[in-house]
Amino acid sequence: MAQDYVHRNYSHTQRKVTGSSGGRTARDRARRTLSQNFLVDRAAVDSMVAVADPAGTVLEPGAGEGILTQALARRGAQVTAYEIDPLLAAKLSARTRSEDGIRVVRADFTKARAPREPFAVVGNIPFSVTADIVDWCLTAPALTSATLLTQREYARKRTGDYGRWSLLTVSAWPWFAWELRGQVPRTSFRPIPSVDSAILRITRRPEPLVAHRDSYTDLVRTGFSGIGGTVRASLRTRYQGVDDALTAAGIDHTAVVAYVHPDQWVELHSMLTH
């Protein structure tokens, strides 16, 4: 692990910061604006690569200084590294120009066009655009998987680690599996963020669990509407046979929506829609 600078104010590129603007340089202000926390822990990089198991085309959002970029390429992936910061993009491009399997693109990843051929996404993503990047991944038709280093709380919420399930996860569940695949302490980054991180793995299922996306989405949105306070009350506003379906799916009639497992939503869909 790199030297611990937790008690000092250091720029990510140079010596101790001094001067005006509260002791921050333009680079420090840009880093805050772009939510840049660079991964410096080699063990964490190895964990990311092991979970991602990269092969073929890999897109990396927020490549930063390239520690993950180069590790992915060494495993044989063809990496397109997106970096919105012009200085970082230029430095990474110059550093990797002679390396096979790396292409650096100075651009906003969330505005990139998804490849038509199968590809994966792997990245230590900026916390401030986590939702945008996850949404991009879920709507890319050829995406096979996304291995993302996110805030620990975000990964736990999306994977049911708190014992509760979010609308986003439930809505995407028939098409994507969501897994929490390891935790990364805040000290693995420079500058050190205020929270720990975790590896979120989203994998496209070989075969969807439901055949009709629209009817499943309508069911889930109705259940999450909050009408009546329970899943039973919400679903009974639109569907017949709700009590029998809840019993068959093992859902208590007083259950609130967050505590219904995504697999139970799939079962409800099979019984309440035709």
Rank of each mutant, 00 (worst) to 15 (best):
A114N: 05
R97P: 02
V122T: 06
R103N: 07
T110Q: 00
R103Y: 02
E99L: 13
E117I: 06
F119P: 14
V129S: 13
V134G: 13
K91R: 15
F109W: 03
R106C: 15
A90T: 00
G123K: 08
D85T: 05
R116G: 13
A131V: 09
E99V: 07
R103C: 11
I133A: 10
K91M: 12
F109A: 05
R97N: 01
I102R: 07
T110W: 01
R103P: 05
F109M: 06
K111W: 00
V104R: 09
V129N: 11
R113M: 05
R95L: 11
P118L: 08
A89V: 00
I133N: 06
P115Y: 01
T96V: 06
R116N: 15
E99H: 08
R97T: 01
V105P: 11
P86W: 04
T110N: 12
G123Q: 13
S93H: 09
K91S: 13
A107Y: 10
D85H: 13
V134P: 14
I125Y: 14
D85N: 08
V134H: 12
E99I: 11
A112Y: 04
P118F: 04
L92N: 15
N124I: 03
F119M: 08
E99S: 09
A120M: 10
R116C: 09
E99K: 03
S128R: 12
A131S: 15
D100Q: 05
V134T: 10
D135F: 02
L92P: 12
R103L: 06
F109I: 06
G123I: 05
T96P: 07
P115M: 03
V105L: 05
D108V: 01
V129Q: 13
S93I: 02
P86K: 02
R106W: 00
S128Y: 12
I133F: 07
S98C: 04
A114M: 04
L92R: 11
V122L: 14
I133E: 09
A107W: 07
K91L: 09
A89L: 03
A114D: 12
D132F: 04
A120R: 13
R106Y: 05
V134N: 08
R103D: 12
R113V: 08
A107K: 06
P115V: 00
D135S: 14
D85A: 04
V105W: 03
R116E: 14
P118Y: 03
N124T: 09
A114S: 15
V105I: 06
L88W: 03
A107H: 14
V121W: 06
D100M: 08
S98N: 02
R95I: 03
K111M: 02
S93W: 04
A120N: 11
V122I: 15
R113F: 01
K111A: 14
L87G: 01
N124Q: 11
A89E: 08
F109R: 09
A90Y: 04
A90D: 14
R113K: 11
R116K: 14
R116Q: 15
K91W: 11
K91Y: 05
P118G: 10
A112H: 00
L92Q: 10
S93F: 05
E117Q: 15
A94I: 00
D132W: 02
D132P: 09
A89Y: 02
L88K: 06
N124F: 14
T110I: 13
A112V: 02
R106L: 02
V129F: 00
R113D: 01
V122C: 10
P126I: 03
A89S: 10
D100K: 03
L92S: 10
S128W: 02
P126K: 05
